[in-house]
């Protein structure tokens, strides 16, 4: 199974209890991967409130994930 590196920010970091991890996953898209992570970490933010970046570029949720990709889910942040 493809190995994906994950990096968490803000609310997601808090809920996952970690800043990064590497997962083996059958998920083919960031959308499917996020659904897996909801089950694994109990993420509460709906996908519609997030953006996703793969290999340091914003992409859409149907991007075809490949072994070794780095995925960052970015929650909106407003503190000032």
């Amino acid at each position: 199974m493809p190995r994906i590196r994950l990096r968490y920010y803000a609310l997601l970091r808090e809920q996952a209890g970690r800043q990064e991890e590497t997962v083996e996953t059958a998920a083919r898209t960031p959308a499917a991967l996020y659904q897996e992570l909801i089950l694994r970490h109990g993420f509460r933010l709906p996908q519609a409130q997030l953006k996703v970046a793969v290999n340091a570029a914003f992409t859409d949720w149907t991007y075809a994930l490949a072994d070794g990709d780095e995925v960052v889910f970015i929650p909106p942040v407003a503190g000032g």
């Binding site: 920010y9 803000a10 970091r13 929650p75 942040v77 503190g79 000032g80």
Partner: peptide
Amino acid sequence: LASVYQYEGQ
């Protein structure tokens, strides 16, 4: 534009 959340910022 910038925003912060706990120990992070954008």
